[in-house]
């Protein structure tokens, strides 16, 4: 396993780049879903207030 993951003397740079790629896209993915939930909750509560 360790030989498979070994990038010679460039371990930090290669795996650091891959981690950055994964983390940044994961943050984007989470933020769009959180934004969506917040927005629909906000619109629904606004509609309820207008109806009552």
């Amino acid at each position: 396993m360790m030989t498979l993951l070994d990038m010679g003397k460039y371990n930090f740079f290669v795996w650091g780049s891959m981690a950055l790629f994964g983390v940044m896209l994961a943050v984007d993915f989470i933020s769009i879903h959180r934004q969506r939930k917040q927005l629909s909750r906000q619109i629904k509560s606004r509609q309820r207030r207008q109806q009552s």
């Binding site: 990038m7 010679g8 003397k9 740079f13 290669v14």
Partner: peptide, 14 residues
């Protein structure tokens, strides 16, 4: 560049 060029697989598409 040895293995360091593999950064290209995320750097260039980005």
């Amino acid at each position: 560049q040895g293995d360091s060029y593999r950064i290209m697989f995320v750097h260039v598409p980005a």
